Simulated scan of single mutants.
Amino acid sequence: MFLVVFLLQQTSVFADTPPPPPSPPGPLPPGLPLDGGLFLLVAISISYGIYKLNKIKKASN
């Protein structure tokens, strides 16, 4: 039993090599403004919500 446990412990010696260190950071990509189309997105989502509510009301009548 001792020999089996001893041999199973030796398998960790044959593990993979560690990964290479990460490359140094390059230039960051340009940031995208979030406020450019935010008003348009809110307006479209509100109008779609009103459309869906009206569709549900007409279906229930």
Rank of each mutant, 00 (worst) to 15 (best):
L7T: 11
S45N: 14
Y51M: 05
S12N: 14
A59T: 01
I50K: 08
S60H: 13
Y48T: 11
Q10H: 11
G26D: 06
P33E: 05
V42E: 01
A15I: 07
N61K: 14
K55Y: 10
I56N: 12
F2Q: 10
S45A: 11
K52C: 09
I56L: 09
P22T: 08
P27G: 08
G37Q: 03
K58N: 13
L38P: 04
P30Q: 09
Y48H: 11
G31L: 13
P33Y: 04
I44T: 02
P18Q: 06
K58P: 01
G26A: 01
K52H: 08
D16Q: 07
P21H: 02
Q10F: 04
V4A: 05
I56E: 05
S60G: 13
P24V: 03
I50L: 09
I50Q: 07
L53P: 06
I56T: 11
G37A: 04
L41M: 07
F14Q: 10
P27D: 00
Y48S: 07
G49P: 09
I56C: 03
V5G: 12
A15G: 14
P30E: 01
L8D: 12
V13L: 14
L40Q: 11
L34T: 09
G49K: 09
D35M: 15
L3C: 07
G26W: 01
L34R: 15
Y48D: 11
V42S: 03
P18F: 02
P33C: 00
L53E: 14
K58F: 00
K55R: 13
D35T: 14
A43E: 07
L28W: 03
I50E: 02
V42N: 10
S23K: 15
P18L: 01
S47V: 10
M1V: 13
